[in-house]
Measured scan of single mutants.
Amino acid sequence: MATGGRRGAAAAPLLVAVAALLLGAAGHLYPGEVCPGMDIRNNLTRLHELENCSVIEGHLQILLMFKTRPEDFRDLSFPKLIMITDYLLLFRVYGLESLKDLFPNLTVIRGSRLFFNYALVIFEMVHLKELGLYNLMNITRGSVRIEKNNELCYLATIDWSRILDSVEDNYIVLNKDDNEECGDICPGTAKGKTNCPATVINGQFVERCWTHSHCQKVCPTICKSHGCTAEGLCCHSECLGNCSQPDDPTKCVACRNFYLDGRCVETCPPPYYHFQDWRCVNFSFCQDLHHKCKNSRRQGCHQYVIHNNKCIPECPSGYTMNSSNLLCTPCLGPCPKVCHLLEGEKTIDSVTSAQELRGCTVINGSLIINIRGGNNLAAELEANLGLIEEISGYLKIRRSYALVSLSFFRKLRLIRGETLEIGNYSFYALDNQNLRQLWDWSKHNLTITQGKLFFHYNPKLCLSEIHKMEEVSGTKGRQERNDIALKTNGDQASCENELLKFSYIRTSFDKI
């Protein structure tokens, strides 16, 4: 039985969820670079991206490699990797027998973001014989899940209580170790020597080791999670996991709180800001991140802002960003909400898709409305799209047979046209069989910064309504002859009103 693990408890099935942008060198404390989270699957090609990484700022997932063999891993080693800020997950990587050479110096898994409450997941690794993470000293947050690894031993010899604050939620089941077939031998045991430290858990006094050649490092209890030197002297209180010299914040392997210019500090002093819960960055760093993602459509890219001495992905609820200094300031009234469309555009074809934009005031991208039916549609669209004030790209209304009016965009005031449909149009209306009105132009103002209007096959939309939009939106004169079809717009509506004058002759039985 794995020490510190839980057996036999019912657990939810383990679901495996399925960018080499360097964020800056980590400095003297770390020998390499800070790398983003990685999802490495199918083959070993991307694994080489770990070569210079000291910190993975995010998670590391290595999974679904069915053609790899043990010899493929023999020359692979990433000794610079010290810390993973989120979680480490391995799933069905064939041929991998140990992690001792792959990650010989991995010391800390912070667990800032977890995989279903777990910071370390080893699942269905069919050839893994031992973990071998002999320098792993601290899992700051989260638990361990090690399950269905039929060859995995050296679990009962690990004292997880020396690595985690609590072992109650560890789930370590259905491994070879369960069948008591392992016969784990710690260093020196074969020669009758006791080389590794022994600890007591559940009444068992057991030597602690990761492999037959690597003991588990056990520091004096007084050192807590700070770690200790090879001689057993406690590291500085700002260290986490390990250090090369005692009581020196510049000799830590990793930091308990924050890293700044080669030393570990309790908090980031001005003019620095907390970033990702582990390091200090200056304003320029946060500003660069903001600008890199301002026009990016890459998933996970955030326009970072500053709030409460932190550089964070977005302002919290009730705050909006001051564009001059990136500071989050309290909103006066309802907060603006910028919604970034991942692929640059979004099609609204149902109430469900409209709900995804609920509360958005600025759309960074283009909207395509293609709704053919739905219950209580006008009210639903207004509830979900009615706060949109600005669209950076274009607005396209296409084959939306259920629409009679666009009044559900009740606050839309600006279409920038930074991206144009077919390279020309910022407003595009095609084949809307029941569209009769755009907006009530006596109450609604709309500016279209650039781009043209396109109207074709809107049989109940009168040309007068379209011409009014040209005047109000500032697009009059931009359109070419064929942009607004004269014969297919309003051709099934009563669009022309003329005053009919009647004269009559009164007659009676005795007068003409």
Rank of each mutant, 00 (worst) to 15 (best):
H28Q: 06
H28N: 13
H28E: 05
Y30K: 00
P31H: 14
G32K: 04
V34T: 07
P36W: 15
D39P: 00
R41G: 15
R41F: 05
N42K: 02
N42A: 07
N43Q: 12
T45E: 01
T45M: 15
R46L: 04
H48I: 07
H48W: 10
E49G: 06
E49L: 09
E57G: 03
E57H: 13
G58S: 01
H59E: 08
Q61Y: 05
Q61M: 09
L63P: 00
M65V: 11
K67G: 02
K67P: 05
T68Q: 15
P70L: 13
P70K: 06
D75W: 05
D75G: 03
F78Y: 12
F78M: 08
L81S: 00
I82R: 07
M83I: 14
T85L: 10
T85R: 13
D86W: 03
D86V: 01
L88P: 00
L89A: 02
Y94T: 15
G95V: 02
L96T: 11
E97Q: 10
L99W: 00
L99V: 10
L99I: 09
F103R: 09
F103V: 05
P104H: 01
L106S: 00
T107I: 15
I109M: 02
N117C: 05
Y118K: 02
Y118H: 07
L120I: 15
V121T: 06
M125G: 01
K129A: 04
E130R: 11
E130V: 07
L131I: 10
L131S: 02
N135K: 11
L136R: 00
M137Y: 05
T140C: 09
T140R: 06
T140K: 08
G142K: 00
G142M: 00
S143Q: 05
S143D: 09
K148V: 07
C153P: 00
A156Y: 10
T157E: 02
W160D: 00
L164G: 14
S166T: 14
V167C: 15
N170H: 06
N170P: 04
N170E: 04
I172P: 08
N175F: 04
D177H: 11
D177L: 08
N179R: 14
I185T: 04
P187A: 12
T189A: 08
A190Y: 14
G192P: 05
K193A: 12
T194F: 11
N202M: 07
F205I: 03
V206K: 10
W210V: 02
W210T: 02
W210L: 03
T211Q: 01
S213Y: 01
P220H: 11
C223P: 00
G227K: 07
G227A: 07
T229E: 05
G232Q: 07
L233P: 04
C235V: 00
E238N: 09
C239R: 00
N242H: 12
C243W: 01
C243S: 01
D247M: 05
P249E: 08
P249Q: 07
C252A: 00
C255T: 00
R256C: 03
N257H: 05
L260T: 15
G262Q: 12
G262M: 06
G262S: 08
R263D: 14
R263V: 13
P269C: 03
Y273H: 14
Q276H: 14
R279S: 13
F283S: 10
S284W: 12
S284C: 03
F285P: 00
Q287A: 13
D288E: 09
H290T: 08
K294A: 11
Q299C: 08
H302V: 11
V305G: 06
H307P: 01
N309W: 09
K310A: 10
K310D: 13
K310V: 04
P316L: 11
S317F: 14
T320M: 11
T320E: 14
M321T: 10
M321V: 08
S323I: 05
N325S: 04
P330I: 13
G333P: 10
P336M: 09
P336R: 08
